[in-house]
Each structure stands twice: as structure tokens, then as C-alpha cells.
Amino acid sequence: MGQFIISVGREYGSGGHEIASRLAEKFNVPLYDRNMLDQMAERNGIDAEELHKHEETKRQGLTRTVRGHSSSVQDQIAQLQFDFIRNKAESGESFVVVGRCSENVLRGFPGLISIFVRGEEEAKTERICRLYKLNKLEAKAKMFRHDKKRKAYHNYYSKMKWGDSRGYDFCVNSSLMGVEATADALYTMISDYLKNKAEQ
């Protein structure tokens, strides 16, 4: 089996991150999510918390760009993450990556398989209530806030719109079968696809 990269975009509360974790586990490959910032911080001697504050956030306020370098902290962190996953892809490593506009950043890599996970509002609300011990009103507000931020970030740094099915190989509603069964179904489909590709 050659190199493969699974990119997972997700609505907040859809279980997309858990699906990505399960796929990484099943394929026995690394998972890159916010942990890539910890690796960058360690390598560059920076406080990881500072980086996490601005992750998956688009540029805010007035900034200057000099010779292609932006003065925006958000731009710099976004570019660090884009470079990180591009370097991993160029190294020939197989991995699963969550968010970070990865389906756009890594477009053109032959091993890329992009997924977008959505869910029904009720199911997502229940999941957020359960995970964060919130009431329904708080859960819906949290979901709306996170999705708004993700959409703004993605649409700022990508050509394709966040969640637009034309930008992904697989778009799946995790509410239909639940997170675990959705991860199993995706694993089966991707395994079959990789097997067929290897036999061609």
C-alpha cells in the first residue's frame, strides 16, 4: 500500500474528530490535529498555549504583508500548520489530519482522501451536552460559535467553501449511524479504495 493521507473536515459536535482518531488507529498511522502545534512549540521553544489561542482562527484587524510574510499572528500560525502538513505529505508519510484546510492545502497529492463529517442539529447538541456537561441552550451556542469560527477560517484560507460537497471525496452524516459505525463504514470504503488502487 502506497502513501495515503486522510483529511477530515467536520462540523462541531458531529464526532468528526473521534472518527479521525478511529481511522488513524485502524490504519495504524499518526493523527495530526492541535497536537501539531505542541510539536512546533517544542521545536521552536515557544509557549504552546500562545499558539493554541490562535489556531483555526482567521486574520483579525489590520496587518501588513512584507515580501509575502504577514504580520498577523493568525496568518503565521495558519502557515506554520500548512507547512507542517505539507512537509509530512512530501516526506511520503501516511497520516490522518483534522481540519487546518488540509483538503485544500494538500490538493494535488495523489494519496489524498478528503472527508467532511456533518450531523443533525439535535444529535450534535446532545453530544455536546454530554461531553461538556452543558444544557441545550449552552450547547447550541457553543456549536454555533465554533462552526462560525471554523467556516470563517476555512473560507479565508481556501478556494473551496467549508462543507461544500464538491470539495471533498466523501461527505457523511454521522447522525445516521452514529460515530463508531460511521468510522467503521469509512474505514471499509477507504480500505477497499486503497486495495483497488494498489492492484491497478
Results as ranks from 00 to 15, higher is better:
residue 42 E to D: 14
residue 36 M to H: 10
residue 110 P to V: 02
residue 182 T to W: 04
residue 156 Y to L: 07
residue 92 G to R: 09
residue 172 V to H: 03
residue 196 N to Y: 02
residue 147 D to K: 07
residue 43 R to F: 11
residue 173 N to V: 02
residue 188 T to K: 11
residue 158 S to I: 08
residue 118 R to E: 04
residue 16 G to M: 08
residue 70 S to M: 05
residue 3 Q to W: 05
residue 112 L to N: 07
residue 169 D to V: 05
residue 112 L to P: 04
residue 185 A to E: 01
residue 135 N to C: 09
residue 3 Q to C: 13
residue 97 V to G: 08
residue 47 D to A: 14
residue 17 H to K: 09
residue 105 V to Y: 01
residue 108 G to W: 06
residue 103 E to L: 08
residue 110 P to W: 01
residue 177 M to P: 00
residue 153 Y to Q: 05
residue 65 T to P: 09
residue 66 V to H: 06
residue 57 T to L: 14
residue 124 K to S: 05
residue 30 P to H: 05
residue 121 E to L: 13
residue 137 L to Y: 05
residue 147 D to N: 14
residue 84 F to N: 13
residue 91 S to H: 12
residue 132 Y to C: 09
residue 126 E to A: 15
residue 62 L to H: 09
residue 3 Q to V: 11
residue 59 R to K: 15
residue 124 K to A: 06
residue 84 F to D: 12
residue 70 S to V: 07
residue 109 F to N: 15
residue 175 S to Y: 07
residue 138 E to Y: 02
residue 128 I to N: 04
residue 106 L to V: 15
residue 29 V to M: 04
residue 166 R to G: 11
residue 21 S to M: 13
residue 191 S to W: 01
residue 111 G to S: 03
residue 132 Y to V: 14
residue 14 S to R: 01
residue 46 I to S: 07
residue 66 V to P: 02
residue 28 N to E: 10
residue 113 I to K: 10
residue 113 I to T: 10
residue 170 F to H: 09
residue 74 Q to N: 04
residue 168 Y to T: 06
residue 162 W to A: 09
residue 109 F to E: 07
residue 30 P to E: 02
residue 45 G to C: 05
residue 69 H to C: 11
residue 64 R to C: 14
residue 102 S to L: 05
residue 79 Q to Y: 14
residue 142 K to H: 05
residue 186 L to D: 01
residue 129 C to L: 11
residue 137 L to V: 10
residue 2 G to R: 05
residue 44 N to E: 11
residue 107 R to Q: 15
residue 59 R to V: 15
residue 144 F to Y: 08
residue 195 K to I: 01
residue 182 T to K: 00
residue 117 V to N: 02
residue 111 G to C: 06
residue 36 M to Q: 10
residue 107 R to D: 13
residue 46 I to R: 11
residue 137 L to R: 07
residue 183 A to R: 02
residue 25 E to H: 15
residue 98 V to I: 13
residue 56 E to H: 03
residue 91 S to E: 09
residue 126 E to D: 13
residue 161 K to A: 14
residue 100 R to Y: 10
residue 189 M to K: 08
residue 165 S to W: 09
residue 103 E to W: 02
residue 156 Y to V: 08
residue 134 L to Y: 07
residue 105 V to T: 01
residue 35 N to L: 14
residue 197 K to N: 08
residue 59 R to F: 06
residue 113 I to W: 00
residue 107 R to W: 00
residue 70 S to R: 03
